[in-house]
Design a protein around this nucleic acid. Structure first.
Lengths: 225, 225
DNA sequence: CCTACCGATCGGTAGG
DNA sequence: CCTACCGATCGGTAGG
């Protein structure tokens, strides 16, 4: 899926602090894009970060856009893989959800720069590769939707709106800044988010309120503007 | 707080489709920054959007960075105001939380471009104004933390980690794309998110699991990388 | 609010 | 993997 220019072999999840120069370039770019944005980072910035001059970068990559594409593909590879492993690890839908959230939160904590670029910079891709990426993102979100729907169908989950729940689950643990300030391990953070997810799907619902009926007028607040 | 160059009066929440040319500039810039990013948008783009030539923009604003600052201030004004109104509307901490979530989700749905710029482009501000903005964001987040802590102290809420809950609450309804595809009104969407928030704080916890003890090893999943 | 224009920086190429 | 350099575009100014 991702492309490269020279002989460096591509490895989907190989950004565990890369050994090849290509991986070093992609990782340095991910950190810079995450900090300053895609348009706020020049090829000279990336070259400096890996100890090269800007024109020499083009022996490793085809273009700046290809570097962005490699980062986004890598991030998506990790998320999709984590989701696949969580779901295939057990037939228990509750355990699937808990493990899916934990695996996602852990991957996000381990690769915050890639995740941030995926979340913020997709719109800088050209139309064609952007379509491929957004299709893949849609597939990934559908796998979460299907997981929740399975749990609802089997009676293990009860949820007012699957379409509003899934984005909430997907946003969990996205801001790694606050987490690192806590005295919790990544595994503990992941576990807490798993707990929150289970709360959001539990069939018991909210005590003191019998159903999940929609009654928007019950607590409206008069707005100023 | 926000600045302007000419005689246009500044109005904190005045971006209800602006009447003055200054407001038109800020709103057009918000939409462009949200779509293409701050660095991906030129002053010429903004000028085109309001029917001016680029140099004429400087009769309305001091610089491109000032436009970004005005957008971010406006978004923060709206969030802070919504939070203040929700909390001061009732002494009931549960109702405070529900209304705070609803008001926040509603404001986000009404001003998606301003919210997106606030979330994505703060790092393009110069160090001094960025410090002011990040301080204000921290204050805003603290008001959520205090709200949850009040509920926990009074026994109305029970939560495993306030520090991990608050970011989850703050991320609710941030992606307005999925919401608009649903056949729900903004008020209904807000109500659903309010429900989710109440689920996350309810003292009953998760049935079938007695406590909120941390036991990260219970459901670990072997990772590939 | 316009035309004309500036210095700086950008992604990328030439040629070795 | 380097030096030298290109056309394009940027934020912003001059001067009226």
């Amino acid at each position: 899926m991702a492309e490269k220019a020279s002989g460096a072999p591509y490895h989907p999840l190989g950004h565990v602090t890369g050994s090849t120069k290509y991986q070093q370039v992609v990782e340095a770019a991910a950190q810079l894009f995450a900090d300053r944005g895609y348009r706020g980072t020049s090829m000279r910035d990336i070259a400096d970060a890996v100890g090269l001059h800007a024109p020499s970068l083009y022996n490793r990559v085809h273009s700046k856009a290809d570097v962005l594409r490699a980062i986004i593909d890598s991030a998506l590879d990790g998320l999709v893989d984590a989701q696949f492993q969580a779901i295939s690890s057990t037939p228990d839908v509750e355990l699937q959800l808990r493990r899916a959230v934990e695996a996602k939160v852990l991957f996000q904590a381990q690769h915050p720069h890639f995740i941030r670029v995926l979340a913020l910079e997709v719109h800088h891709l050209d139309e064609q590769p952007r379509g491929v990426v957004t299709d893949r993102i849609a597939q990934y979100e559908d796998s979460w939707l299907a997981l929740i729907n399975r749990g609802c169908a089997s009676g293990h989950f009860r949820v007012a709106s699957v379409e509003l729940l899934v984005p909430t689950l997907l946003s969990m643990g996205t801001q790694s800044a606050a987490q690192s300030a806590l005295n919790l391990s990544m595994a503990q953070v992941a576990y807490h988010f798993g707990d929150m997810a289970m709360r959001l799907v539990e069939p018991a619902g909210i005590p003191g309120r019998g159903s999940t009926d929609v009654d928007p007028g019950a607590s409206d607040i008069s707005r100023s503007a």
